[in-house]
Computed example of a mutant assay.
Amino acid sequence: MPHPDQPLTNDDEEEDLLDDEEEDLLDDEEEDLLDWASIATLYAVGYIRILADAIERGDADLQVDPVAWENTLTAVEGVMVEHIRGRLHGPTAITAEDVQRMRRLRGLGSAALSGGERSPELCPLALQCMESLFGPDWKRAAREAVFYARALNQEFHPRSGT
Rank of each mutant, 00 (worst) to 15 (best):
M1S: 12
H3R: 11
D5F: 09
D5P: 05
D5H: 08
Q6E: 14
P7W: 10
P7S: 03
D12M: 05
D12A: 09
D12S: 05
E13G: 03
D16L: 12
L17E: 13
L18H: 05
D19P: 00
D20Y: 05
E21F: 13
D24N: 05
D24A: 07
L25W: 01
L25P: 00
D27K: 02
D28S: 08
D28E: 09
E29G: 00
E29K: 02
E30R: 09
E30H: 03
D32V: 01
L33C: 03
D35T: 02
D35R: 08
W36Q: 09
W36E: 11
W36R: 02
W36L: 07
I39Y: 13
I39S: 13
A40L: 08
A40D: 06
T41H: 04
T41K: 13
T41E: 06
Y43E: 09
A44C: 11
G46N: 04
R49K: 15
I50G: 11
I50F: 12
G58W: 04
D59W: 12
D59V: 07
D61M: 04
D61C: 06
D61F: 03
L62Y: 02
V64D: 07
D65E: 03
P66W: 01
P66V: 00
P66I: 00
P66D: 01
N71Q: 06
T72R: 10
T72F: 02
T74V: 09
T74Q: 11
V76S: 03
V76N: 06
E77T: 05
E77P: 06
V79L: 05
M80S: 10
V81T: 10
E82N: 11
E82G: 02
E82P: 02
R85K: 15
G86F: 13
H89S: 12
G90S: 08
G90L: 14
P91W: 13
P91Q: 15
A93M: 12
T95R: 11
A96P: 09
A96Q: 15
A96C: 10
E97D: 15
E97V: 09
D98G: 15
V99S: 08
Q100G: 04
R101Y: 04
M102R: 11
R104P: 07
R104Y: 03
R106D: 06
L108E: 04
G109R: 00
G109W: 00
S110K: 04
S114L: 13
G116S: 04
E117K: 01
E117V: 02
E117I: 01
E117C: 00
E117W: 01
R118S: 11
S119D: 06
L122I: 02
L122M: 04
P124W: 04
L125N: 00
L125M: 08
L127P: 05
L127W: 04
E131F: 01
E131I: 01
E131R: 14
E131D: 08
F134N: 14
F134M: 14
F134R: 15
G135I: 07
G135W: 03
P136R: 15
D137V: 10
K139N: 13
R140C: 07
R140W: 15
A141I: 05
A145S: 15
A145Q: 13
A145N: 14
V146T: 14
Y148G: 08
A149W: 07
A149R: 14
A149S: 14
A151K: 14
N153L: 11
N153Q: 14
Q154W: 10
Q154E: 14
E155M: 14
E155K: 15
P158L: 14
T162R: 15
